[in-house]
């Protein structure tokens, strides 16, 4: 396994939490409650809650090259996109995030390892994406596992 993969520099970008994007996601996720998420009413209570589902894909919109880390590896020829499947996603929420807020995002490849079955070699790519306020306060940590599946008889 190529441990140089782990030397890839983390990706950093700013994710502006927008009410309209939260609402678009709510509709795409079949959330029929018109009050969720709610627009910011200008007071202390409640602005739109950032929907967890947006966070794993925000790199498509807000990173400099419009790619999440796994697709950046694919673009660099280090991963075969056509063999990729999603394995797991874990969210750890430290506090809520609100529309109008800007979050600092740092995405890094944390671990790469292989497992073999009788027919396939599976390469696991574990990414950690940290969301913080611009003051550095932790908001959310996401761990994602992508799996590159390669049949042994392909090699």
């Amino acid at each position: 396994m190529d441990q140089d993969l782990l030397k890839q520099a983390p990706t950093e970008f700013v994710f502006p939490v927008e009410w309209g994007k939260c609402r678009e996601f709510a509709l795409a996720l079949l959330d029929s409650d018109p009050a969720s998420p709610k627009p910011d009413d200008g007071g202390d209570d409640p602005a739109a809650l950032l929907m967890p589902a947006i966070m794993p894909v925000c790199a498509f919109r807000y990173s400099q090259d419009g790619l999440p880390a796994i697709l950046r590896l694919a673009q660099a020829g280090l991963v075969d996109r056509s063999r990729l499947v999603q394995g797991e996603v874990e969210f750890e929420f430290h506090r809520r995030a609100w529309s109008g807020e800007q979050l600092s995002v740092t995405e890094k490849l944390a671990k790469v390892y292989d497992k073999e079955t009788s027919k396939e070699v599976l390469r696991f790519f574990e990414f950690e994406t940290a969301f913080r306020s611009l003051d550095g306060e932790p908001v959310c940590m996401i761990r994602t596992v992508n799996i590159e599946r390669r049949r042994k008889d392909d090699d």
Binding site: A28, D31, M51, A53, V57, V89, F91
Partner: peptide
């Protein structure tokens, strides 16, 4: 994440 997102919501 479509399925996971609906679960989360």
């Amino acid at each position: 994440l479509f399925t996971a997102g609906i679960l989360g919501q």
